[in-house]
Design a protein around this nucleic acid. Structure first.
Lengths: 203, 203
DNA sequence: TGTTTTTTTAATCATTCGTTTAAATCAATT
DNA sequence: AATTGATTTAAACGAATGATTAAAAAAACA
């Protein structure tokens, strides 16, 4: 039996991920990461060269996961309506498991976007996606109205991700506990696909 | 002719608003506010007692403006469909003038929500709103399907505000300049109301 | 004008920050 | 067991941070 006790580097990275996602780059202190990892402060800079590099590593991973999961779902070979229903269902579940991801990814992208993210090839989202072709085909067949792929993707992502971005506000306004919020999001699993497909079908 | 040169307190507050909205609480340094205001650092603590109190003042204002504008629109005495179209149009324009507001309000609410925001009575949004009654009436008349006011408001706010929360990412992915992003948002002015009303009318 | 109050300034405080150092400990190899 | 290299530790570094001080300048008032 192999012990699955993580090594120091992994412990630091996982702790950093938790802390960065909760508090953002500026709100995160190196000492907090070390403490969360149960590790000496110097080890953070021993394994990763600096706070910034550690953040960069984690942000790239998180960013890739956030958009990669969506791209994967978008590229599946399913009829459009099935796809929309499936994406809303699966991506909602994905964000339920990673509720801090949307706020983290979107907020941090706005700050450092210049130098940090040239390395991310997310622009290929729309170009390589099977989706663009699918939307064009369905429109030409008269099944849906014409829509820009970018508009479609943002419409979809926004309607799925926004409740998580606004989670604290929603729970506060609606007096929701964890179960209440989960129910709130669950309701949207039928609401959002119905709404989007209804819109697309109208010509 | 009276000079409209703002006094020191105003200069600090306006500078702080710009800096806080751009960089968030953690990303904002007192010296940066002073510099932006063209004022000695000590004056920030002379007029406001601390960075935290200054932030609090600005956050409350911004929060109130963000939700207050929406509440006002929601409470107007217009037929539902007209109201939805008008809200999307006017609230989009409002956010065009305050593009950093959504990210700022939503992100900072998540952090300090405990002690800072007991004083904000946003819970009354739904209770006092004419909207709740309107939604119930329209549903009973068979004009729309039944929908929770909270779901309706978040659906509306999310679809209007999300592009601004995701502004940098959208512009990056879609290769949009300022004009391109403005056009992107402008397109949603017709898309979103059509979509939401289409959904509501279906039973 | 002389006095008092308000506002502004330069300087500095104590703390916290990210990072580094040099020594100590551990693990692997011979 | 001795040697080597990798890992961990306690301590400290310089810089930046939020905040304060005491004196100077300006404004208000008598």
């Amino acid at each position: 039996m192999t012990t699955d006790a993580p090594d120091t580097e992994t412990k630091i990275k996982e702790a950093a991920k938790r802390v960065f996602l909760s508090n953002g780059y500026d709100g995160t202190k190196t000492r907090q990461i070390a403490e969360e990892a149960g590790v000496n402060i110097a080890l953070v800079n021993y394994y990763f060269r600096s706070k910034e590099q550690l953040f960069k590593a984690i942000y790239m991973e998180t960013f890739a996961s956030f958009f990669g999961t969506m791209i994967q779902l978008l590229n599946e070979a399913t009829p459009l309506e099935v796809k929309v229903w499936k994406i809303v269902d699966k991506y909602t579940d994905f964000l339920m498991d990673n509720p801090l991801m949307p706020q983290f990814v979107l907020a941090e992208f706005g700050k450092n976007s210049t130098s940090l993210f040239k390395e991310l090839d997310v622009k290929s989202i729309l170009k390589s996606a099977r989706l663009s072709q699918q939307l064009r085909d369905e429109a030409e067949a008269g099944n849906i109205r014409a829509i820009e792929p970018l508009q479609f993707v943002i419409l979809l992502m926004g309607n799925i991700a926004f409740p998580f971005v606004a989670h604290p506000v929603i729970s506060y306004i609606g007096d929701l506990d964890d179960a209440g919020f989960r129910a709130f999001v669950e309701t949207r699993k039928t609401m959002v696909p119905e709404m989007i497909m209804g819109y697309l079908r109208q010509r």
